[in-house]
Structure formats: C-alpha cells, structure tokens
Design a protein around this nucleic acid. Sequence first.
DNA 1: GTATGATTCAATCAATTGATTGAATTTTTG
DNA 2: CAAAAATTCAATCAATTGATTGAATCATAC
Lengths: 208, 208
Amino acid sequence: MKLAEKKDTKTHILDVAERHFAIYGFAGTTLRGIIKEADVNVAAVAYHFGSKEDLYSAVIERFAKPVVEEQLSRLRKEIVKRNVKLTNILTAFYEPPIALIKSMGKRGATLSLFLGRCQTEQEPIYSMIDKHFAPCRDQFLLAMRQVLPGLSKKDYHWNFEFMLSLIVCFLTRQQVISKRYTANENWQVDDVVSRLVGFCTAGMQDSK
Amino acid sequence: MKLAEKKDTKTHILDVAERHFAIYGFAGTTLRGIIKEADVNVAAVAYHFGSKEDLYSAVIERFAKPVVEEQLSRLRKEIVKRNVKLTNILTAFYEPPIALIKSMGKRGATLSLFLGRCQTEQEPIYSMIDKHFAPCRDQFLLAMRQVLPGLSKKDYHWNFEFMLSLIVCFLTRQQVISKRYTANENWQVDDVVSRLVGFCTAGMQDSK
DNA sequence: GTATGATTCAATCAATTGATTGAATTTTTG
DNA sequence: CAAAAATTCAATCAATTGATTGAATCATAC
C-alpha cells in the first residue's frame, strides 16, 4: 500500500478476514494469520470488532446485505407483473450475487468461496448466516408457489434447496474447474446466469 | 459399550473421528476431542494412524472406497447396454451413496455431512479427496458423452458438477430441512433418488 | 497549545493444540 | 511358561491459540 495510502484499519482487517474465512473456514482461520497479513496489531481486532466471532459476523454483514437486498428488490419487481414466469424469478435470484462477484474481480473470487463455505459452518456461525438469508429464502419460496402451483410443501423446499445448491456449486467450483480444464479463467455474467436459470427451470418444471 | 464389548480400538477411533471430521471439519476437529469421546489414549492415534492428516485419510478411505466401487460397477453394467439412457446413468451415480447412507442409520447421517463438507476442504485434504473421486468422475463424464452427444466440453463439466451438487445438497441439508419443516425425519431411498434423477435429467436434457 | 477522546502498540495470559517419549501392560508366538 | 511383539499408558514438549492489559501515540475539539 504505497499510494492511496492508509486504507482505514477496520476496512483493512475486514478485507483480509474475508479472504481468510473464505479459504480456511471459521475454525481454520487464526486472528494472527489475519493481523500479520493486514499488518496491524492483534489488539486492533478486539478494539474494532470484539471477538473472532464478531469479526466473522461483520464480514457476513458487509457482503450478504447488499446481495440479499438486491435479490429482494428484483423479486418485488417481478411478482407485481401480471404473469410472472419462473425464469424471471430465478434470474432475480441468481443475477445479483453473480454480478456482484464478477464486478469485484479478485475479491469476488474469494467471496465466492466464502459464500459456499459458510453454508457448512457449525453453530454459532450457522445461525449468523441463516439470520441474513432466511427472509430472502422465505420470499422466494412464496414466489415459487405462485409460478409453480400444485406442488407439495416438500417439493417447494427441495426445489429451493436445489436452486441454491446450483449457485453454490458454481461459486465454489468455478476456479477449480476452469483451472482443471481450460487455460482461460474468464466467464461472463450472462452466460453463467443463463446456464443456471436454464438448468434449474428445466429441473423444476420438466422433472417427470 | 457394555455388551458386545471392546470394539477394536482402531475402528473405534475411526468411528469417532469420522463424526468429528464431518461435524467440525478438518481444522475444527481436535485429536483430544476424538480421544476423549472414544475413551482412548492420545498416543493411540499416532500409533494406529500417524498424524491427524493420516487419520483423515483413513476415514475417507474407509467410506469413499465402497461407494465409488459400487458406482463404477453400476455404471459398467449400464454402458454395455445397446441404448443407454441418461436416467440410468444418473441412477447409477446417485443410488449407491444414498443407499449406503440410509442403511447406516445414525452413522449414515454423519457420513452425509462428511461427504458434503469434505468438498470444501483445503489442501492437503482436497487432493486426498480428489484422489478418491477423480477416477469415478472421469468415467461418468465419458458416459454422459455417450448419452448427451453434441455438447461442448464445458457443458459436460458443468452438467457433471451440477449433478454432483444436487446430491451434496441433499446429503448436507436433509437434516436441517426436515428439522425445519417437518416432524418426520424419515426418507426413502427411492423417493430421494427419483427426485434427484428427475431434477437432473430435466436440467441436462430440457435446458433451453 | 492543550485537553480530550480515539486508536495503536508491545507484552503477556491461560488454555489448547498436535506430537513424542519411554515405561508399563497386554497379546501373541514358539 | 517364557520370549517377543503389539498395544496402551501417563507425562511432557514446544508451538499456537484467542484474548487482555496499560502505556504510548495519534487526531480532534476547544
């Protein structure tokens, strides 16, 4: 950090912590690993955030909030329309996180991992995560009921879980896959979204 | 452990380690947590397995091997047929792990978690995992080429990843979901397999 | 300028971590 | 039974963990 010097310490810690939590998980991340890379004092974490747990919470807060808000905003615009379509609901769900991650370049890549990894964290992390995503999940479940009438409650839930798992799959595997099979790590938002929407639409509607 | 006394120490450690790795991940698991629950000496781990890493390897070995072997065996029986169908390939992939887990009762539930969680482990764990599943993955990729001609290499890979993600989703979320929405945690192998096969077949074939 | 509050720092805490040692014990072998 | 091998044990190691303290430094307001 030479020019544009002295990014605010709190933000700096947050940035590094985000990457560490994404890569190593909550248990695998050490405060010392973070503060060493961020080049700050250990006490700074306690001062600005409190505990390791609080730090994790701050990381989630910063990144999940804008995604969920955008998803819900997009969803609201869809469900007021006369005849909502499943593809539009799914696009409203998939595009915000994908677009955000794409726009963030390298940081986006670690956020991908974070999003995938945080789904398998234990308590108390799990509740922390769920708190942020539960309202969004419920809204989309309701919307699916509109566009896919006649399914059982169980069907809705599994459809939603599958929908979620596809994006988590993309987010966590994208780097691995493109490294394994291609020289080119580039991907386009529209390609990915339409791939996800396509697979999921078919799965939900045409599943015999 | 009162009757049927004295399960072999090595197996005993393996059982407890399996559950701990499943729940807490590699980093979150402590040898002391394991040996305390298994009621054995710390040195027993070193004696029977070596390091913590070696122990993890032993856990994978024991559980992944029979699954992969059964998957490949089922696959071989399918691809010799005159006209292979996608549904049959998918069933060959999905049924073995699902059936195994179901047959194992409570231990199966933790194995579910393990299978899901191990997918997001870091090196050197990741390579350990990949080593066991890579041959299987390659075989199924080849088979998909037979039943879904005309797709790009990229398409095959993402289809395979999505196929994988659906079962990982089921394995890791099943307990959470059924706890959230129903009183009944029971599920039938055939129901689950046909749900997975149905969703995935549609996603692969009818994706516009 | 100086006082007040915000921030950073080095030093240290007790607890836990994976791992190892060598003796004690059990089991197997001849 | 006795020798040998396999297994278990308590004790301990150095390293790392999250967290805290009180002094030092910085920024801001008056």
